[in-house]
């Protein structure tokens, strides 16, 4: 468990960090909370020549309400989110998801930005980001660019952040309490075998569903969303609609869950997440 030789830099500002990335190109890797990168390096599955630690860049760690939206800095830890009163009031899905990530040590160090950029197919955040239609602000040598959640999670372990770029912050909408996250956990790793985030908008009679752990990348359960669009969120309707949670998806398969079981769990967890959200209707 000893990584290959690497150089380490710890820039004080985002500009400095971008400078390092520009200089070292694909040989550089950004270190956020380190909960994916460090294990991969210790296994030597990742052997960057330079590690750019962005942990001391102060203005990347915040949770604020700005212009009618929630803005969360990329270096905000899972625990910051789990314990944020602002989020509990205004975007309660996030603390609910954060609470189910790893264990307390992981949540104290791991960051939302690191997790999203790593784009682990079983990470918890992508489900919530998709369900909330989050917007990611990526900054690079040519300035900042916004990327919608649906475009951000490109593929397994691949996000829209290109080499040379850094995820700066995530913008999310304010929501009502009618949200829910239902996670079926892989016992060994604590990652999701099927994690479903549901956001229910009662006024518009619409729901959005983000699903993680089931396929090579997190996805929106479009079939479920359209089945429930405009319809009453009764137990029966939710039950029927949830059956579409894995439609058109090529589920992953491993020793913890076959593709068939994963698809089944996607449906079960979708139903549970929706029921949870609906149970929170005033």
């Amino acid at each position: 468990m000893i990584p290959a030789m690497f150089d380490y830099v710890r820039p004080a500002t985002l500009e400095e960090a971008l400078g390092h990335l520009a200089k070292y190109g694909e040989d550089a890797k950004v270190l956020a909370g380190g909960h994916s990168l460090i294990p991969a390096m210790k296994l030597r599955l990742s052997q960057p020549k330079v590690v750019v630690d962005i942990g001391r860049i102060g203005d990347l760690r915040f949770i604020e309400e700005r212009d009618g939206k929630i803005a969360i800095g990329a270096m905000t830890t899972h625990y910051d989110i789990e314990s944020s009163d602002l989020l509990k009031r205004s975007c309660p899905l996030l603390p609910e998801v954060a609470d189910k990530i790893g264990d307390i040590q992981v949540r104290n160090k791991g960051t939302i930005g690191g997790s999203c950029v790593h784009a682990d197919p079983a990470g918890d955040w992508p489900a919530a980001m998709l369900a909330l239609d989050a917007e990611f602000e990526i900054t690079g040598p040519r300035g900042s660019r916004p990327v919608a959640a649906k475009d951000f999670f490109v593929d397994m372990l691949t996000s829209a952040v290109e080499p040379g770029e850094i995820l700066k912050l995530i913008r999310l909408p304010l929501t009502a309490k009618t949200v829910g996250y239902a996670k079926f956990t892989q016992k060994a790793s604590g990652f999701a075998i099927a994690g479903v985030a549901a956001v229910v908008d009662k006024a518009r009679k619409s729901v959005t569903i983000g699903v993680t752990g089931v396929a090579a990348k997190a996805y929106r359960a479009a079939g479920v969303e359209s089945a429930l669009s405009g319809s009453e969120l009764s137990t029966a309707n939710i039950g029927t609609a949830s059956q579409k949670a894995a439609d058109g998806v090529d589920p992953l398969s491993d020793i913890h869950a076959s593709a068939e079981f994963r698809a089944h769990l996607a449906c079960v967890q979708t139903r549970r997440a929706l029921e949870l959200a609906v149970s929170r209707l005033p």
Partner: peptide, 22 residues
């Protein structure tokens, strides 16, 4: 939850705590 899994070719698939549940 526990079981040590080798695949058909003899590779150990439960080689660490990410896959071996205690």
């Amino acid at each position: 939850m526990e079981r040590t899994v080798y695949d058909e070719s003899g590779q150990l698939l439960t080689g660490e705590f990410m896959d071996y549940a205690i």
